[in-house]
Design a protein around this nucleic acid. Sequence first.
DNA 1: TTTTTCTTCCAAAAGATTTCAAAATGCTCC
DNA 2: GGAGCATTTTGAAATCTTTTGGAAGAAAAA
Lengths: 258, 258
Amino acid sequence: MLPPLRRARILELLRKDQVATLKDMSIALSVSMSTLRRDVDYLCESGQLERTHGGAMLNQERRNAVELEPAIATELESGAKRAIGYRAAKLILPGQTVIFDSGSTTAAVARAAQERRVPFTAVTNDLSIAGTLSATPIIRVLVVGGFVRTGTATLLGPGLISAVGRLRADLVFLGTHALTADELSDTSVELADLKRAFVQAGEQAIAVVDSSKVFSRAFCSFARTRDLDRVITDDRIAPDDLDALRSRVAVDLVPEAE
Amino acid sequence: MLPPLRRARILELLRKDQVATLKDMSIALSVSMSTLRRDVDYLCESGQLERTHGGAMLNQERRNAVELEPAIATELESGAKRAIGYRAAKLILPGQTVIFDSGSTTAAVARAAQERRVPFTAVTNDLSIAGTLSATPIIRVLVVGGFVRTGTATLLGPGLISAVGRLRADLVFLGTHALTADELSDTSVELADLKRAFVQAGEQAIAVVDSSKVFSRAFCSFARTRDLDRVITDDRIAPDDLDALRSRVAVDLVPEAE
DNA sequence: TTTTTCTTCCAAAAGATTTCAAAATGCTCC
DNA sequence: GGAGCATTTTGAAATCTTTTGGAAGAAAAA
C-alpha cells in the first residue's frame, strides 16, 4: 500500500472512532507497528492529529469541522459506498425517471446504474454524475442548469429550484451530509432548498448514506426521515442508531464486503 | 502504443482509483517499468499528477474536478488546437462574461483560460468545459441546462435557447464543424439554433477553428463570417482560403509551434 | 515490579537512478 | 520509392536510495 493512502486510512479510522490505539490501527491496516508509528508521527508533525500514549486522536479543530478535508474525503471511494451504490441502482426499473442528487454516494449509485445497462431517464445537478451516466447511450441525462459550486461539481442557482419544481420523477436518490433518526441535513441553505425540491418532485425518495455520516448533524435540515421511503446504508452503523432509524423508516443494510 | 495515448491511459487509471502503484500501472498498460516511470515523471513535471514512493496520485486540483475526457484531451490535443486556445484565451479580460460553445477547440480555449488565472464568468453548455473551468475557484461557471447529447458532453434541449436568449455576454467563443468564406455550419439543426442564440447573446463573436475544418461545409448554417468579429485558426490554412476569408472578417493566424 | 509503549538501530526489501544497448522512428540523399 | 545515417524511444541491468519490519534496550504507565 502506498504511504499517502495508508495515511489517509489512518485518518479515516480516527474520524470514525475519534481515538484509536496504534496496535489496533496496525492490525486494521495490516502494516507493522514501526511503519504505522512513523505514519502517525508524520501526521502529527503535519498537524493532522494528536498523539497519546499508545494511540492517537484527531486534531481538535478537525474534529468539529463540518466539511471534511477534501484531500482525504476523496481518497479512494470506500467499499461501503460502492456497495450502497450497487444496491440502490437495483431499484431503478426500465423507463423510469430518476433524480440523482449531487454527492459522492449518489455518484456511486450513478456508476452502478450505468453498469446495469437499464434504460432510464436521469436528472441531476452534478456534473460528475452527468458525465458518468452519459457514457451509456441508453440513459437519457437531463442536467439542470446553474452555477458550478467551486470545489464540488455541483450546480446551484436561482432558477434551479423552480426548474426542478416542474419535474416529476419516479425515484429520487438523495445524498446527505448528516443523518439523525429524525432528519437529514446539509451544509448550505441553497443545497438544502434544492434537496427539498428534489424530494417533492419524486414519487419515492431514497437516501443513500454511508455510515460515517449517520448520527451527525449539519447546519441545514432538508427532510424528515419519516418522509423518506427508504434509507440505504452500510452495516457499520451502530446497532442503537439503526434501531432508532428503523422506527421511522425502512432501512436497507448493505454489507461492505468486496 | 503512442506515448500521448499511454499517458492519457495513465491519467485514466488514476482517475478511477485516485492512487495507483507504478507496478500495477505497468502491468495494466503492459509497458516496462522504465517507460512507465518516465511517463509518470513527465506527467508530474507538467503538473498533472503527484508522485509518491512507488506510485502516483492525482493532482489536488484535478481530483475534485469533473473528469469526463479532458485528461485524454490534454494529452492528445493537437498542437494547433492548443495554440489556438492559447491565443483566444488572451482575449478574455478580467470580470467579463464569456460564452463557451461546445466542442474540442473551444475546450482548448477553456483550458488555456483556466491556466491564465484571470477572474471571469463563463457560460457553457459543454460538460467537459464546465469541468475544466470549475477547477479554478476564481472562474464562475454557469452551465445552461439540457439533455446530454450522447457521445459528446454537450447539453441541448428545448428550454436552452430561450435561456440563452436572456443572457448578455462580452465574448462568445464559437466552435464549428465547417467554415467557408461565407458561413459557419454544423451537423444538426438543434446545435445550429443554439449557436445562433450564442452569437446573438454576445457582444463579440469569435470563431475558433482548426484549419482542417476550413472550407468544408456541413448541413446547417448558423452564422455568416461577416457577422463575426474575429476568426482564430492555425497557419496550415491554404493561402487562397485565407485571402477569401480575410476579405470578410479579421483572421488571427496562429503558428502551430510548441 | 510487570507490562506496555517508545526510541534507536539494523538488515532486508522495494523503489528510484543511472547507464547502456537494442529497437523504432525520422531524416537525408540517392 | 528505398538505403543509410542520426535521433529518439524503449526495455533491461547495475547501482544507489528510501522505506519497511523487526529486535534490543530505554522510558513510561499500570
